[in-house]
């Protein structure tokens, strides 16, 4: 059975939006799924070897300066050579995420991947460009925060009043989850759609989506987020905007 290789191209060891999207997509794709992390040149040989018995590759990448991160670009060149020498013709999909709210800002990266597939005689099967990558992370943290508060509420309610199924707490938790799912709904829709295409080996199209927050609100949230982080790390006192 041909494998489906999911490659996380984020250089981050933890808390990467690309890694999260990979985990999410592996829930929807059927088959012999293999996961790989591409962070340095040391990863190339190991991943390239896996391409021999792989039929489909899905890349999960962060958008860096409107394009492919440089460490992934090095890999793409090696992959082109490997595919040519070994006569490997893979189906290639891409899920990229940008820090900007507009998914469309991933367009240049999509074009580069299409060109790459052409160069290495692989089949470009489409991609999803996602906007609001950082917020994807924030939302998944919020999910666990809400779940923690919910469990704590149940324990307190159970111990104090003997009520281990507090309706009010359940309602609040479900409402919070519904909001998170709504904010993710565009991303989830296109990822499930792509998974369907992957399962059938079809072209999925190139789609752009985002976290469903109005742009002006997203910019305010993003700015507050970076102010808080910069306060914590001290950058705000070291010529932050100069």
């Amino acid at each position: 059975m041909m494998k489906i290789l999911l490659i996380n191209g984020s250089p981050k060891k933890k808390m990467s939006a690309s890694g999260f999207l990979l985990t999410l997509q592996s829930l929807f794709v059927r088959g012999d799924i293999q996961r790989e992390s591409l962070r340095t040149k040391g990863d190339h040989g190991r991943i390239l070897k896996k391409l021999k018995d792989t039929g489909t590759v899905i890349f999960f990448l962060p958008l860096y300066v409107d394009g492919v991160p440089s460490h992934v670009l090095y890999f793409m060149k090696d992959m082109e050579g490997y595919c040519r020498v070994n006569q490997i013709h893979l189906k290639v999909y891409l899920i990229s995420n940008a820090g900007f709210i507009e998914g469309k800002q991933n367009e240049a990266l999509m074009q580069v991947f299409k060109n790459f597939c052409h160069a290495c005689a692989c089949e470009w099967c489409g991609g999803i460009g996602i906007g609001g990558g950082v917020m994807l992370n924030v939302l998944r943290i919020l999910f666990f925060v809400f779940a923690g508060i919910f469990l704590l509420g149940i324990i307190i309610s159970g111990v104090q009043r003997g009520d281990w199924l507090p309706v009010e707490a359940i309602e609040i938790f479900l409402r919070q989850i519904a909001i998170i799912v709504f904010l993710y709904s565009g991303v989830l829709f296109y990822m499930i759609r792509m998974a369907g295409a992957v399962n059938k080996g079809e072209f999925s199209g190139v789609k752009y989506t985002r976290v469903l927050v109005p742009s002006f609100l997203f910019i305010i949230i993003a700015n507050i987020f970076f102010i808080i982080i910069s306060l914590g790390k001290g950058g705000i006192f070291r010529g932050w905007l100069r």
């Binding site: 250089p11 860096y64 790390k233 950058g235």
Partner: peptide, 15 residues
């Protein structure tokens, strides 16, 4: 080295 995506050039030691 390649960029590690830490954003410290924004948030810790600007530029």
């Amino acid at each position: 080295s390649a960029c590690r995506g830490c954003f410290n050039c924004w948030t810790k030691h600007p530029a």
